[in-house]
Nucleic acid binder design. Structure first.
Lengths: 145, 145
DNA sequence: AACAACCATTGACTTTTTCAAGCATTCGCG
DNA sequence: CGCGAATGCTTGAAAAAGTCAATGGTTGTT
């Protein structure tokens, strides 16, 4: 076991800084999730894209980019990868032929399901009421743009 | 105003995924903070390092790396920059001459103070009780390694 | 019909992240 | 004590992620 060197610093004012806690928590979560998803050939990014593509009314790439706060060009790469693996498909939006709707294939939704089981819920150590307040507060911060 | 394209996707299951909310919220926060800090020549990273160097018992680079979850080599670059600008100083730790203790200079702590005022508190729209639960829950997630 | 706005894509470029190797120092153990 | 393993900082290279401008096809507006 590492002798918790970080404890020295634990008393820092940063510990009460929500921005800092946010980034540290998200890094911790992302590292864990990426590790869990690696065997499936996914990362949190591709996992999220797959999840969005699963919707009844699948999103366009632009919507994905906005939702995930990515540059559209990054979405291209993500979708390219998942499409080549047969996990989702691009279709030009009939209502706007510039846009491409991204929908998961059966294989994609199947993989997503196993992936979802693989990723342990991060709020395991938190009680349900607290977890719910957490979700609500985070959602507020995440979508306050 | 943009017609909130992302709303289409707002109902996605991801919206209840804490990991996702965490990363999205932290990206939003980081972008805002970076923007606010830019005029001072700081980013959230350097701001954090400065904050840690302000402690009564200043940390070593290794401790900074661990606390910020960065690779030690990244800390080198950060400290290099801040040191060249006279905002902090390296001193070899008398108790372990391999390690270098990083302490803020007066100029550094002054800049940190103005920086702290510049960065608007992200929990402005959240009531205090909720903010406190948020902090507690985030801390749990952030340090559960 | 013409023009501006918009989506997806490409390519270039910068920044961030991740690794491995190096030197100096410390620690544990014989 | 002395020797090898481990640790802390530093460097440099490679991979990944982020940013930005330009292009082709399409839409919407005038």
């Amino acid at each position: 076991m590492t002798p918790a060197h970080a404890d020295v610093v634990r008393g820092s004012a940063l510990t009460r800084n929500v921005s800092f806690l946010l980034t540290r928590a998200s890094v911790v979560a992302a590292q864990r999730d990426n590790e869990a998803l690696a065997p499936l050939g996914l990362k949190v990014r591709s996992f999220s894209v797959l999840g969005l593509a699963l919707d009844d009314q699948p999103p366009t790439q632009r919507e994905i980019a906005e939702f995930l706060r990515l540059d559209p060009s990054q979405v291209v790469a993500l979708v390219d990868d998942l499409e080549q693996r047969g996990l989702l498909a691009r279709e030009t939006d009939p209502r706007d032929r510039r846009a491409k709707v991204v929908a998961a294939t059966p294989a994609g939704s199947e993989l997503y399901e196993t992936a979802r089981e693989t990723v342990v819920d991060i709020t395991a150590g938190v009680d349900e009421h607290e977890a719910e307040t957490l979700r609500r507060a985070l959602a507020k911060l995440a979508f306050e743009a």
